[in-house]
Design a protein around this nucleic acid. Structure first.
Lengths: 256, 256
DNA sequence: CGTTAGGTTGAGCAATATCAAATTCGGTGG
DNA sequence: CCACCGAATTTGATATTGCTCAACCTAACG
């Protein structure tokens, strides 16, 4: 299941260079960050707490996490799912306090990247990295807006369809999806907190999708069988961040 | 109803300086922007279209607008309400395309501010304005996160209570709320698109709030009568953006 | 005054939540 | 390999919330 036996430290450089072309120097900077000692976290580890200060931004190297908010009576809403290559506690602004909690949803490995926030804002030596971070942030905002649409105006089935398509889109951009199939370490309970539904209702809708032959979901692996059906049910559209990029790199289909 | 007969051009300078201390020079820059020719727009004018290029960022001088997204069958979700002093089409990133539509919800006056995005990013001559824009953006993100929580996990009554409290909080920061009472130019139909409910259901919940003596709403004016009841029903908390600010300027009560 | 957009009301229905009881799955120790 | 345990999933029954439709009312405005 794992690629080779030696870590290549290429996750960040690859992801960033797909967002924006990088110089060799910039690739080196990212490889160096990724070569650092990894921090391991078990599932359910709290990485950031809402309202607390953010010490050091970091990147997820493997595993899934999420940003969330809670209400007094225990209701929880997941704000975004964080995947390998995503940053934790990084912002182009210099605000010290975390606006959400962040918790590991699976075993997680991260690397600290204290210099990256500064690099982003100063744009001096690493303009390519800054531009890539801009695009990543724009994508995050795009997905957040889609999330608001989902929660406010879509039915359970539509929400879940849209959410699955979005996940697959993001994973395939990181080579973590194999023709629509990917490892999905979340429980249905977690999914329900992401899409704003009850667990039972999530379960029933997932089963309907199975019966209709649109997905396969078992043993921590989710496969999209009927991409077009899910796309149109959820009205999923990939982020269109620049007129140019849109023409150059449509999501037409993920390879391999 | 209007303050004096001469425009003071102080809206932007006042709002920004409450976010972050400004130099005299910076106040001058903002007054100059605000002194420019205003653009007038009727209600329902589309100011930005999702996916289209953003020409020039601008500020709302008077009136209300919103950012929104739509689904194919006409369902609409409002992403945020834009109030006087808020920017339209402004981002610390340099992304050219608007991620949402923006439409006027009332008659609107705006001024263009083409230099402000550059000023924000370069942070050279106007560090105070940059810092104020950072804080405004952090506040926007905070409200967006609260919006996700509302839509995903709160009941109709809670959503509306929270939404009203948030509006009043934002308006009072702009001196547009008089002890919890303010002009509210939105139809219930628009409110329903903001809180993700049907018009009828919004109407019923508003009436319940009236019966319970918590709000007064008529003739385009909304008054909060029982602030504490609404606050606790919606679990509203004002944005806490820095440990310092939190201690210095709690929302304890809005004056006048 | 007449018109019209917006607000209000009632009735019935559809979507989703809640509760409680199986059942299956993934380990883990024997 | 087997038995067992807890967590996750599934199922059924029922309650609740919120939606839709259609009618009616009211206020603002020319």
């Amino acid at each position: 299941m794992r690629a080779a036996f030696a870590p290549t430290n290429d996750l960040l450089a690859t992801r960033f260079s797909r967002l924006n072309p990088l110089s060799d120097h910039e690739r080196g900077v990212l490889r160096l960050i990724e070569a650092r000692a990894k921090q391991g976290h078990r599932a359910d580890t709290h990485l950031l707490t809402e309202g607390r200060e953010i010490r050091t931004p970091s990147f997820i190297i493997s595993g899934w996490a999420c940003r969330f908010r809670e209400l007094a009576n225990g209701r929880r809403q997941i704000v975004s799912i964080l995947l390998p290559g995503d940053a934790i506690g990084l912002s182009c602004r210099a605000h010290a306090l975390s606006l959400t909690g962040v918790v590991a949803l699976s075993p997680l490995r991260t690397v600290d990247a204290p210099e990256i926030a500064v690099a982003w804002r100063e744009r001096l030596r690493t303009p390519g990295i800054s531009a890539a971070l801009d695009l990543a942030a724009a994508e995050d905002e795009f997905f957040m807006l889609a999330h608001v649409m989902r929660l406010g105006r879509q039915t359970a089935y539509e929400r879940i369809a849209h959410w699955i398509m979005e996940l697959e889109y993001r994973l395939s951009a990181r080579d973590l999806s194999n023709n629509g199939a990917f490892l999905m370490p979340l429980t249905q309970d977690t999914i329900s907190d992401a899409v704003g539904l009850s667990v039972v209702h999530v379960n029933r809708n997932l089963q309907q999708m199975r019966r209709e032959g649109r997905i396969e979901l078992a043993h921590g692996r989710l496969a999209i069988l009927d991409r077009e059906a899910l796309r149109s049910a959820g009205e999923f559209a990939p982020p269109l961040l620049s007129a140019f990029q849109g023409a150059a790199a449509p999501m037409a289909e993920s390879r391999q």
